[in-house]
Amino acid sequence: MSMTDSTEPVPVRSGAVSLILADSRFPGGGHVHSGGLEEAVERGLIHGTADLRPFLAGRLRATGELTAVFAAAAAHAAARGVTRRHWAVLDSEFDARTPSAAQREASRAQGRGTARAASAGWPSPVLRELLAETPRPHHPVILGVITGMSGGRPVDAASTAAYLAVSGPASAAVRLLGLDPLAVNGIVANLSRALDDVAGRAAAVAGDDPRDLPAPGAPALDLLAEAQLRHHKEEVRLFAS
């Protein structure tokens, strides 16, 4: 492990960037992804807020943890300056930790959408290098690059990624099941501490070689993602993932 958040000089933070990226109004294509929640609902695994709570907690510890790690690593890399090739390595290391092809595609679709919005909102040489190397980057990678190049810290990028890993399915649950949005917001709010822990762990390894980054996962989410894609092709699904 090289530099960690605590040993870095405190950079000039652009806090609004994290807020913009985490905002559900950000036009990066996130609203069409449910993170496996639609498939779980279709299978009768989630009926109400009581079932939603463990789903979101589990997704945070799997997808959220992984995306936080890669967002933090990308932010660290963008801030310290890396060769163009680094982005391809980071991107393919995320591939390697995402066994479901459907999840890889969902991540790239959101990465592409975020890239489009970022190219209009924050044009920069780092962003152009990333997109020249990988035009459809993984979602956490570009979240990290945008955060890092804007002066945000790895932990900020990790927080954003981890939060999006739960806020997307939470919003999908409100839309699909008609759950009380206040109750669902309460569930997300109660994950604050866990979100901070995930972001902290991710920031602690942000400077590591991409090959050594953690590889948390959840086979059930992989299977739900694959099933969602198959059912989407055969019948009706409202969300892309």
Binding site: R25, F26, P27, G28, G29, G30, H31, V32, H33, S34, A109, R112, G113, R116, A117, A172, R175, L176, H232, R237, L238, F239, A240
Partner: peptide, 21 residues
């Protein structure tokens, strides 16, 4: 065909990503 996440107006107005793709 694009999926709109149960929000058809969002997909054509507020977040047009899926349609642009």
């Amino acid at each position: 065909a694009v999926q709109t996440g149960a929000c058809p107006h969002t997909a054509i107005r507020d977040d047009i990503t899926a349609n642009l793709d």
